[in-house]
Amino acid sequence: MHEIVVISGKGGTGKTSLTGAFASLARNAILCDLDVDAPDLHILLAPEYVREEAFISGFEAHIDPGACTGCAVCADMCRYGAVVVSGQKYTIDALRCEGCGVCVRFCPAQAVSFTPRHCGQRYISSTRFGTMVHAQLFPGQENSGRLVSLLRREARDTAKAEGRDLILCDGAPGIGCPVISSLSGTHLAVIVTEPTPSGRHDLDRVGRLCEHFRVKVAVIVNKYDLNQDEEGRIQALCRERGYEIVARLPHDPIVTGAMVARKVVTEMPENPLSALLVQAWSRIEGLARAVGASQGASLSL
């Protein structure tokens, strides 16, 4: 089985529009949206829920006002500033609470309870391009990394059950917790960048993250015609790091047009991007299979 994740470092470079187009081109794939914080792939793929489950992860502290003696031990020990003191009243700010349990353990009056936290919902759905695994973290919640790991496991199980040999994932922006969770053990990271100072800076950092986790990198330069000098610098960076550029895509309003029509670009009539996307996808699939084969070979040694 091969896993491909589309990431970018910088947000808004076109990850989801491209993943949607690749979903239409992939044969035999399970689709997965790992941007659990602000997922958008469902907007293009119109999934119909087959199964829905609560994502319960970690704990949240509550102070029982009847039992609290106002000793302030919790407020002194909390490293996250989550204990709010107003006069003699102590409460926990759920947005700051990390769920570590220090206040629960050290409260002399045992006035702090600890309840499991309902952080979001996860789904298995059917779409016109195949089964999709996705989720929505509730606003302000944490544990996105754990949710990403759960979705990837679910996607692998679903792929096995349906006899699919490819998992295509839309990733999150940044280089933090959810991105790290989406990289471990994946075969290929497709980094979508754009020829701007931010695009190049963020490609550099997310590329180093991939190298840190020994994940092979392929690059798509989106809107390459925005700035020739910056594109040159991106090409130089890719040469130096050994990242293959699998596509250079021009800025084209058809991408927004497709989004408004709730379609993927390859479903739009007669547009020059589609042909480029077909080529890019064939190269991406080839690279992912090659990595899978070489890992399989080294495993069997």
């Binding site: 947000g11 602000a38 907007i43 947005l95 606003p139 302000g140 944490e142």
Partner: peptide, 25 residues
């Protein structure tokens, strides 16, 4: 970007939150 714990940690304690968006789905 986003709306989970890093984004909330950033904007917490602000006097004004300016949301930048684009008119797409």
């Amino acid at each position: 970007p986003g709306v989970s714990c890093p984004a909330v940690t950033a904007v917490m304690d602000s006097d004004f939150i300016l949301l930048v968006t684009e008119p797409t789905p």
